[in-house]
Amino acid sequence: MTTTAEQANGWEPRIVAFFCNWCTYTAADLAGVSRLRHAPNARIIRVMCSGRLDPQFVLDAFARGADGVLVGGCHPGDCHYMEGNYKALRRVRLLERMLDGMGIHRDRFRLEWISASEGEKVKTTINDMVARVRALGPLALPAKFADWDREMDELEHAVAAQTEDVHA
């Protein structure tokens, strides 16, 4: 299922991670302080709360070339802002169905509850996510967009040419 050509080209999964300031970002810091080595593929964006996660952030990340998106928040009941993580969960559930519809595999998008003390879980989550996304291969939406644009252009040209023929 993996395109070996891409791996030969040195393709590496690119994961964008949205971590909440109070739990998961702190846990990522703890992973650092504890020197828990993990796959270098995740790039973290800090938000104050997982509730700040606008589904558009996820869609935009995929559209711009992310192969996976990871969201980290406090465990249920532990949110620094009481219930932002529940709001995030509601949105994530809807978003997952939308991503299904768009043909983006479930393994490319993940929500994890990681508390400030779970540096180890940051490591295992990132490693696991990278392994799954690696198995799926590149998503490469930007390239697909370019293809689709080209197809549309060609279609338009074809239609335009036909119309000209009719009028001729």
Binding site: E12, V16, P40, R43, I45, D60
Partner: peptide, 17 residues
């Protein structure tokens, strides 16, 4: 945040890993 996402992903060449 969109600028941050864009910045993370706009590498011209494949990221060196």
């Amino acid at each position: 945040i969109f600028s941050e996402i864009r910045g993370l992903l706009e590498a011209d060449e494949p990221i060196l890993t």
